[in-house]
C-alpha cells in the first residue's frame, strides 16, 4: 500500500514538473526520468512485460530521438554590420561581444544562428525578414524613430562629437582611430553623452525579444564582464 502511494505520488509530481518546464532540453531529460519511474512502477504492480517495453523505449530511445530532433529547432535570422569588437567575421569565424551574447542565447534556446551581412543603416526600414539586427546600434540614434523594431539595450557607452560635427560612439571612434582615419585630436572630449548599445528586434518576432530580455537580465554578471573585457579591453 505504501509502495503504491509513494510510486503514484512520484509519477504525478514528475508529470507536473515535465509539463511545467519551459526549456525543451530540460523537459526532454525530465520526461526520460518520468518514463523510467513509470517503468519501476509497472514492475512493482505486476506487469514486468510492460515495464521492460517502457524502460527500453521511453527512457532510452525516445530521449535520443527528441534530442536529435531538437537540434537546430528553428533559426534566428541575424543581420549585422561589421564593427570590430562588437561583431565581425574574422579569420576564425565570427567574433565580438554581440556575437558571443547571441551565441549564448541561441544555445540556451536550442536555435541556430543564420548570419547575413548588411552594408549600411539606411535600408534598415526595408529589411523585414530579420529577427535581430545588430552591429553597434546606439539607442539615442533610433529611439522613437523605428516603428517596426523594438530596442533591447545591453551595454552602456558614450557618444562623442568630432570637430566635423559627426556624432560617434566609443567603439566606432576606437576603430577609426586605430585604422588612422581620424586623429585623436579631432575628438571633442567635453561633449560626452551617455547612451546604450542595443539589439534591434523585429516586431514580428516579439517572443524572441521577450526571451532575449529575460536572458540578458538573468545572465551572470561575471560572464558578461568577461566577454566585454575580452573583446573591448
Amino acid at each position: 500500500m505504501f509502495l503504491e502511494i509513494s510510486l503514484g505520488i512520484i509519477l504525478v509530481v514528475l508529470a507536473l514538473i515535465v509539463v511545467l518546464q519551459n526549456k525543451p532540453l530540460k523537459a526532454i531529460i525530465l520526461s526520460g526520468a518520468f518514463s523510467a519511474s513509470a517503468a519501476i512502477t509497472y514492475f512493482f504492480i505486476g506487469a514486468p512485460d510492460v515495464a521492460m517495453a517502457e524502460a527500453s523505449i521511453g527512457a532510452v530511445f525516445t530521449t535520443f530521438v527528441y534530442i536529435v530532433a531538437l537540434k537546430h529547432s528553428g533559426k534566428l535570422r541575424v543581420g549585422y554590420i561589421d564593427q570590430a569588437g562588437l561583431i565581425k567575421r574574422g579569420a576564425h569565424g565570427y567574433e565580438g561581444v554581440e556575437y558571443e551574447l547571441l551565441k549564448l542565447f541561441s544555445e540556451d534556446r536550442a536555435m541556430s544562428l543564420e548570419m547575413k551581412k548588411i552594408d549600411s543603416f539606411d535600408s534598415i526600414e526595408k529589411l523585414e525578414n530579420f529577427d535581430i539586427i545588430c552591429g553597434g546600434m546606439v539607442e539615442s540614434t533610433f529611439s522613437g524613430k523605428l516603428r517596426d523594431f523594438m530596442l533591447i539595450p545591453y551595454l552602456e557607452t558614450n557618444i562623442f562629437k568630432t570637430k566635423k560635427g559627426e556624432k560617434l560612439d566609443l567603439v566606432r571612434i576606437k576603430n577609426l582611430v586605430l585604422s588612422g582615419q581620424i586623429s585623436p585630436q579631432d575628438i571633442d572630449q567635453n561633449t560626452k553623452e551617455f547612451t546604450k548599445y542595443v539589439f534591434l528586434i523585429s516586431k514580428e518576432s516579439e517572443d524572441v525579444g521577450k526571451a532575449l530580455t529575460d536572458f540578458l537580465q538573468n545572465l551572470d554578471k561575471k560572464i558578461f564582464n568577461d566577454i566585454v573585457r575580452r573583446n573591448l579591453g
Binding site: 521492460m52 527500453s56 530511445f61
Partner: peptide, 25 residues
C-alpha cells in the same frame, strides 16, 4: 535471448527489437 524466451519469461519481440536498435544506435 529476450526474443526467444518471450513465451517463458517477460520480454518478447517488441522489447528485443528496441534493445537491438539501441545497440546499433
Amino acid at each position: 535471448y529476450i526474443a526467444l524466451v518471450g513465451h517463458l519469461s517477460p520480454g518478447g519481440g517488441f522489447v528485443a527489437g528496441i534493445v537491438a536498435g539501441t545497440g546499433m544506435m
